[in-house]
Nucleic acid binder design. Structure first.
Lengths: 337, 337
DNA sequence: CTGTTAGCGCATTCAC
DNA sequence: GTGAATGCGCTAACAG
């Protein structure tokens, strides 16, 4: 590994000139620039970005912490953030938290220890209070796909209330009147918001949501399977169920299959997220799409704006809207009346 | 951000002592250690890892480059690598290449520029020659899930030939005699190897693989759909198709559905990978499992061994074996004879 | 336009 | 056991 000093010597100039030739070409004479370039090529010199960062106090790096990488949900957001950042010449460095509160906390810290100029956090496990404390401690942080009241300016999130309402509206439009739901973990704000929106819309239409038909899941298919079984075995009749994630719907479908219940003829299902899984399920899942890639990109933009203290902080889109993606898992009762 | 100098001043000692108290506690008196600790807490001091790396010339960081994050395939491997590295006190920093050769090259370089002590590369697009050149240029690199002849010691990979053979064997065991296949891109070595193993096994059993029933896909579902349509519309009869990825199988299933072809009654399907998708497909997909997490973990271990020039380089497992996961997409002709 | 002088924050000699 | 220098590789004033 050649250093800048060696290049300088080889080119017969000072290290400062080499540095300028590389970073501020307009400040240096063409002739010397050529000499420097020649030396750089001859030695295969590559600037040490770490030293550069130390000296200039700017690392051009932004960190991101997620639960895990092995899921399309997180991966898609990271992809979005990475591309957005690449466009402005920043690098993204990712760290996973291992789905533990201590992991989230330490990853958050550690990224700043590495001189990230800002960090994007997808906090799943940390409580609202803990997140608030960390947001105070690290002002250059942005929350990805999470709303923390009081920190709206540093949050990129989906309007989950409207997402839930969308699901309800679709079901109502198709003539459903007896509706069940399998939510996410009660402690997750997304789950709570989706449920609120869902209930409100139903209520507004004079269709109450029976508590006995409201099940708490955890966004995973295994538990969803159990919940759907319970639903199917309960005496309460229903024609549709709103699943708060596509994976939840996958578990529910499996339960229906085992019970010999047809979808959508007997029971209609609507999911949430619209990850790849949704279109591979059978029947193809009607779902509420979350623009994950865009949410990731916005997080990247916001983090960059915060890092550089640019006024763009205000102009980046922070709230995203869910959209319905109609496929084949919801029966239309209004068609054959 | 407090610096080590401020801590030293606050504690009434030298910066060297602070450094030692933190990194080599046994070399410093208990009393002064206490003073240092107090100062650290009082100022909320956190060592700057970048400066630390510069001074000690070891960053305790390993890089990884993948095509994209938004797929479970890459994500799972990264998770494996991250956990393995975390156990040995190393950090993983990931960069995506955007599925382009220049991207792969530049990500590879850039991670070394950031003083990664080693980098793990999942090279998809780069040609064998180009990868070989880069492997020479950067001796501290390991290839993840790819075998590059001549560099076996720095490669972690699946025995794809055996994986292909496994698929063939399973089909033969179930009594299939007329078999089709939809491969990955011909230029990918995995695809070629899987096909070789598949063919050899078939050949050994006296069951030839008809070239007209061998289609080139790209591991994605869209193209697989088209290929399966072609297969279904061709005059050649067949009872099973080996899909070189689960997503390929998903596309094939869709084609069958549109054609009214039942799986596995009319046509049997076998996939490759065993990502989550496989068990959510309908019917549940019988597939060849690739231990992605383990492959990622081994890559992490090997990269760490190479970074620290430890003799463990030799002892980490480099070749992984595929396994068959039987589900419900293959018909058993031997059962009802 | 270019060279000299100072650091960035820390670890690591070498004396004491 | 501890402090005073020195340097990691680079950028950023300040002169000239």
């Amino acid at each position: 590994m050649a250093t800048i000093a060696q290049v300088a010597q080889h080119a017969g100039v000072s290290t400062a000139t080499v540095s300028r030739a590389l970073n501020k070409p307009e400040m240096v004479d063409d002739a010397t620039k050529a000499k420097v370039r020649a030396a750089v090529n001859a030695l295969g010199y590559r600037p040490n970005q770490v030293a550069k960062g130390l000296a200039s106090r700017c690392s051009r790096t932004i960190g991101v912490v997620v639960n895990q990488f092995g899921s399309a949900y997180y991966g898609t957001m990271i992809d979005g953030a990475e591309h957005a950042l690449r466009n402005v010449g920043y690098k993204l460095i990712a760290e996973s938290s291992g789905e533990a509160a201590t992991g989230e906390r330490s990853a958050w810290q550690s990224l700043f220890d590495r001189q990230c100029e800002a960090v994007i956090v997808h906090a799943d496990v940390l409580s609202e209070n803990e997140v608030a404390i960390l947001m105070e401690q690290h002002p250059k942080s942005v929350l990805m796909n999470r709303l923390l009241p009081g920190y709206e300016e540093r949050c990129i999130y989906l309007d989950n209330v409207r997402g839930g309402a969308l699901a309800a509206q679709h079901l109502l439009d198709k003539g459903h009147q007896a509706i069940a739901t399998i939510t996410g973990p009660r402690s997750y704000y997304e789950a709570a918001d989706r449920l609120v929106g869902f209930q409100q819309r139903l209520h507004a239409a004079g269709v109450p949501l029976d508590p006995a038909l409201t099940m708490e899941g955890n966004f995973k298919d295994d538990l969803a399977f159990d919940r759907m079984m319970q639903l199917l075995e309960s005496p309460k009749p229903f024609t549709a169920v709103f699943c708060q994630s596509d994976e939840t719907a996958a578990g529910a479908i499996e339960a229906c299959r085992q019970k010999g219940v047809r979808i959508p003829e007997d029971i209609s299902l609507i999911g949430f997220d619209d990850v790849d899984l949704a279109r591979h399920l059978s029947p193809k899942l009607t779902t509420i799409r979350q623009p994950l890639r865009e949410i990731g990109a916005a997080s990247g933009l916001l983090a960059h704006a915060i890092a550089t203290a640019s006024p763009e902080i205000k102009s980046v889109q922070k709230i995203f809207e869910a959209q319905i993606v109609e496929r084949a898992s919801v029966r239309d009762f209004t068609a054959n009346t």
